[in-house]
Nucleic acid binder design. Sequence first.
RNA 1: GCCCCUGUAGCUCAAUUGGCAGAGCAACUGACUCUUAAUCAGUAGGUUGAAGGUUCAAGUCCUUCCGGGGGCACCA
Length: 519
Amino acid sequence: MTQNKKTDRFEAARLQKKDKIVELGHDPFGQRFDDHRSIADVRPLCPTESGVDGEAVRVAGRIMLRRKAGKLRFLDIEDATGKIQLLFSRGDLSEEQWELMGALDLGDLIGIDGRLRRTESGEVSIFVSELTVLCKSFTQPPEKHHGVTDVETLLRHRELDLIYTEGVRDKLLLRSKILDSVRNTLAERGFVAVETPVLHAVAGGAAARPFLTHHNALDMPLYMRIALELHLKRLMVGGIERVYELSRVFRNEGIDATHNPEFTMLEAYQAYGDYRSMMDLTEAVVCDAIEATRNAECGMRNKDVPHSPSSILHSISWGETEIDFTPPWPRKTYAELFAEHAGCEMTDADAVQAKARQLAETGDIKAEFIADMDAGHVHPDIVVSEVFEACVEDNLVGPVFVIDYPASICPLTKRKQENPDIAERFELFVHGMELANAYTELNDPHLQEELFRTQLEGQSEEDSMAKMDTDFIQALKVGMPPAGGLGIGIDRLVMLLTNSRSIRDVIFFPLLRPEGSEA
RNA sequence: GCCCCUGUAGCUCAAUUGGCAGAGCAACUGACUCUUAAUCAGUAGGUUGAAGGUUCAAGUCCUUCCGGGGGCACCA
C-alpha cells in the first residue's frame, strides 16, 4: 500500500512507546487477563458520594479518550458493555506504573485494577492502582468528536466503524438476536435445522443468475446455490417432516440498497401443511423477532435505539411511521389487488395490455417490454405480473399477504384444486418490500417435470427458474408429502426490525470492489 | 451497463472569479492534582484519488481512468 509512507510517522511514535513498555518489563501485546468484570456490571457499584472509596474492581477495555490535568490523567475506556472513566494519579502510583501509563495511546487495550470512586465533579471513576497493557494499538484513531463519516472508510474498515460509530455495534448485534429468535420460533414448532450443499451442479429453486465456480479434481463446473429449496424438499421426501435451513445464498446480480450478492435466507418446509400453515408460521417468526429486538434493546448500551417505544406490542418504527404487525395480517388475493389498483380484471387480456401501455407512457414499464408484448413474445401472465409490479407493489404498506398468484409464474407451486390457473402462493409485503414468499409445494412429479420443460418457453435459459433437476424429479417420484414451504429474506427482515434503509447497515462486510488495484 | 454527485493532512472540514494549500481534533515538546470534545503555549504533518491537457498561473477549467454514494436498468 502506498499509504504506508504516510502513516509511518504515527506508527513510529507508537513503536517507540511499545519499546518503552518492553523496557519497563511488560508485554505490549498482553496475556490472559482473568476475573475482570464488565463495565456495565461495575458502574452501578460506585458510591454515590464523591471521594468515598468503593469496591476494588478489575476491568478491561479500549482507550477512547484521554485528558490531562497536571499530574492527573483521565482515561475513558470502553468494553462490550459500556464506558467508564479511569483516574491515574501521580501521587498514588509507582514511578514504573506512571511511566507505563505514559506509554499508552488512544486505541490501546488495557486491564485495570483499582477502586470505584466518584470524582469531585461526580463522575463514576476507577482510581487506578495497577495498569496491565493488553494490546498496543499502532493506528491513529479517528477524530474524537465526529468519528469517521466517510461511508467508504466505514465499509472498508468495519472494525473502526464498530469501535467508533455510536450504535453500529448494537444494530449488528441485534441481527444476531433476530437470528436466535427465528431459530427458537422454528425449534419450538418442531422444525429441524439442517445444512445442505452450497455447491450445486444445477442452480435451481429460484430465477437468478448464479456464481460459477469449478471443481479441479472432478474437472466440472459448479454453481453457488441461489436457493435452498430443492434439497430441503428432498429431505421431506426422506422423512424429515419439518425442516429448515437458515443460511447464505448467492446471486450474481446488481448491488443496491436491498441487494447484496450473498445474503441470508430462511427456507422452512412443513409436511402435511399448505401455504396457509406458512402464513401462521410467518406471523409467528416475525412477531417473535419483534419481541426479541425489543427485549434486546432494553439491555443495550446506547439509548438511541432504533425504535420509539410503542404501546402496541407487535409494532415497529419505520422512518417516521409506525407499522402494526399485530396478527392476523390482512390477506388479499392477487386478482383483487390487481383489479383495485390497475382498474381492470387481470383475466381481461386486452385491458391489461392497454394498462401496460399506459404505464409505459409514465415510464413505470419499459418501452422494450411493450415492443416484445406487441410482437407476441410475452405470455399474458407475464404482462399481468409486470403491471402488478408497476402499480400494486409500491402501494402495499402492509403487512399484507398477497395470495393466489397466476400459476404460470409459479413453476414449483401446487395449483388450486378448483382453478388450475391459480397457484397456492403468497408473498408478504411491507412498505413495498417483498419480505417472504411461500407456496403450497407442488408434489406431482410429472407435472413438475412438465413445468420445468415448458417454463423455458419465451425466457432465456439464465433468466428461468425452471432448470431441469433430474435428481429432484426422481425424489418427487418417491413421494413427497403435501407441504407448505416458506422463504424469508433475513437481511430484509433485519432491516425492517432495525429501521435500516440499506442492506449494508445490517451486513458486517458487504461486498465492495477492491480498492487501489494496480492495474 | 447508463445518468447525477463526490474524492484536499491519520480523522472532520475550509480555500472568493483560476492567484502563496488552511483550521480543529489526533501526534510531538512543555505548563497545570478532579477533568468531561479539559484548557493554555509551541512544533511537525500535503504528489489536493491517478494520468494527461489548457494557462504566466490549476485543489479550482477540459479529457481519460480509479474508488465511493444516490438514482435508473437488471433482480419471477
